[in-house]
Every structure is written in structure tokens, then in C-alpha cells.
């Protein structure tokens, strides 16, 4: 570790605002005596590899990256922990949408139908909802919209394209995160009243702050404590919290990644040792 005096965190630059967010947090943390710096990655895959290789202490991880980090760490005889998460990343669900006039009433009615999904590596718009249908024994034709591959679905483009395909009649169903049905309706991608929810997945958690066990606790603990202490009532950090989309940093928990882990195994996305095994995945 060439910079031993600061906690070094990786973040994926899925959007230019990522620089604003983490630069803002960096200034705030350093000003309050918490040594912190960040590295930006273009994909989650390199970020988690670097985490387990101890090139960084912590990684702001997608749920899929968390699963791979766990597996890579285990294969290397190490462990990773989920230290922290956003309040807004708890208990998400994905929904399978159909057009309002669709004859489908239950997931089983989608057998053989074309289902539009997001990018190949999107937990919320591809892996979890497709696994949900598969676990119900429904076999479908998948129409994938690979936008921002390697960003694990952080780029909303693929999900939006899936919704468009549904609205245009090019697909019989589309998979999106629950909040995005509202978003896509508000922004006009989906005409109001044009779609309905056919199925909803079980609840799952999204991003977390993953820390590798070899990272010195003397750097990790003040970092986590400082983030946890950030209050939405503090006008100096509120713009950063708004930009990152949270009201409070909550303790990490790992009991709600099971649905995604099953999907990863079902579709062979990663091997048990964290190797990337997904076909057609070019991050």
C-alpha cells in the first residue's frame, strides 16, 4: 500500500457526479481529521479484484460486486465485510411489468413470452427478476439491453430501454426496479396507466461499503464512524447526501443478498471462487 496514511476507497465512475460526491466527502472527512482518499474505476470487476488484492482498503460496491468480493476473498483465504449502506438501499424489490391490456395475469402466463431486461450485469433489472421467473418455473425469451456493461446496472439506460421496448410492443414484459416504474411514468417513457405490475420479487439490499479484512482498523473505524455520523440536518453534507441519494448511512447487513446469489449461481455469472463465468459479459 503506497498511501498507508489514508483510507483508500474505490468507487465506480458510472456518472460524472461520482467525482462531485466522493470529492465532497473526501474534503469533508479530511477537514474533520479522518484521512480518506478515493480511486475511481471504470468497472466493478477491476474494483473488487483490487480490493481483494489489497490495492484499496474499501470499495463502494454494487450488490453483484459484493457477491464477487465475498467469493474472491474466500478463495484467497481472506474475508470481506459489509460495513455500511445507504438507508435507501434497503429492501428494494424489482417488478415485472406488462402492458395494461396484456392477457397475462400470473407469472406463469409469461411462458414463452419475450421479456425485456437491462444490462447483462444488472442485479435489479436482469439477474434478480429473471431468477424470480425461473424459480417460478417460467421459461421466457430474454431481450437484453446492454447499456453500461460493467457498471452492474448503475447506468439506468438499459432499464429505460427495456421499458421503452415494452411500451412499443416489442416485448411482452419488462423488468425494472420498483421505483423506476414511477420514474419512467413521470418522465414520459411510459404513458400513464399503460403498464401494470405482474410480479414483484422478494426484498433485497443494494450497495454496500465493502472492506477487506487486511485493511487497518485504525483507518477503517474512523472512516465508517464519520460517515455514520453524517446527519441530513447538517447543511454542509446534505447536498452530498442528496446527490448520493440517501438520508442516512446505516450499518451494513448481508442477509438480503440471497436472491442475487441464487441468480448468480443459476445463470453462472460468477464461479464459486469469484471467477467471471458469464457468457456475453464484456465489462
Amino acid at each position: 500500500m503506497s498511501v498507508p496514511d489514508a483510507l483508500l476507497m474505490g468507487a465506480v465512475a458510472y456518472d460524472p457526479k461520482v467525482v462531485t460526491i466522493w470529492e465532497g466527502f473526501r474534503r469533508r472527512l479530511n477537514a474533520t481529521g479522518v484521512p480518506f482518499d478515493y480511486l475511481l474505476y471504470s468497472t466493478y470487476e477491476r474494483q473488487v479484484e483490487d480490493l481483494v488484492a489489497e490495492r484499496i482498503h474499501a470499495a463502494w460496491n454494487s450488490p453483484l460486486a459484493w457477491i464477487r468480493a465475498e467469493r474472491l476473498a474466500a478463495a484467497a483465504g481472506r474475508t470481506v465485510t459489509a460495513e455500511l449502506m445507504r438507508d435507501t438501499d434497503r429492501d428494494l424489490t424489482s417488478v415485472v411489468l406488462v402492458r395494461a391490456d396484456s392477457p397475462a395475469r400470473t407469472p406463469a402466463d409469461l411462458a414463452g413470452a419475450t421479456v425485456a431486461v437491462g444490462a447483462v450485469d444488472s442485479p435489479q433489472a436482469t439477474l434478480i427478476p429473471l431468477a424470480h421467473l425461473a424459480e417460478a418455473g417460467v421459461e421466457v425469451k430474454v431481450r437484453r439491453f446492454d447499456v453500461g456493461v460493467g457498471l452492474h446496472g448503475d447506468h439506468i439506460g438499459g432499464e429505460r430501454d427495456a421499458a421503452r421496448a415494452l411500451a412499443a410492443g416489442e416485448a411482452d414484459a419488462a423488468c425494472v426496479i420498483d421505483a423506476n416504474q414511477l420514474l419512467f411514468t413521470r418522465e414520459g417513457t411510459l404513458p400513464p396507466g399503460s403498464v401494470r405490475v405482474l410480479a414483484q420479487t422478494e426484498r433485497y439490499d443494494h450497495c454496500n461499503m465493502t472492506v477487506v479484512d487486511t485493511a487497518p482498523r485504525s483507518l477503517v473505524d474512523p472512516f465508517i464512524a464519520a460517515l455514520r455520523a453524517m446527519s441530513y440536518a447538517d447543511a454542509a453534507v446534505r447536498p452530498l447526501l442528496d446527490l448520493e441519494g440517501l438520508t442516512s448511512w446505516e450499518p451494513g447487513r448481508t442477509d438480503r443478498y440471497a436472491a442475487l446469489a441464487r441468480a448468480v449461481d443459476r445463470f453462472g455469472f460468477y464461479g464459486a471462487d469469484g471467477t467471471v463465468t458469464a457468457a456475453e459479459y464484456r465489462p
Binding site: T88, R90, L92, Q181, L182, R196, V197, T247
Partner: peptide, 16 residues
């Protein structure tokens, strides 16, 4: 509304 529960959950998450 048939989707009230789904949307209420999503809305609550975003609104804290």
C-alpha cells in the same frame, strides 16, 4: 389501487 403497496414502498424508500 392495485399497485399501491409496490409504489408506496418505493416512494417511502426515496423519501426517507
Amino acid at each position: 389501487h392495485p399497485e399501491l403497496r409496490v409504489h408506496l414502498g418505493a416512494w417511502c424508500r426515496g423519501a426517507g
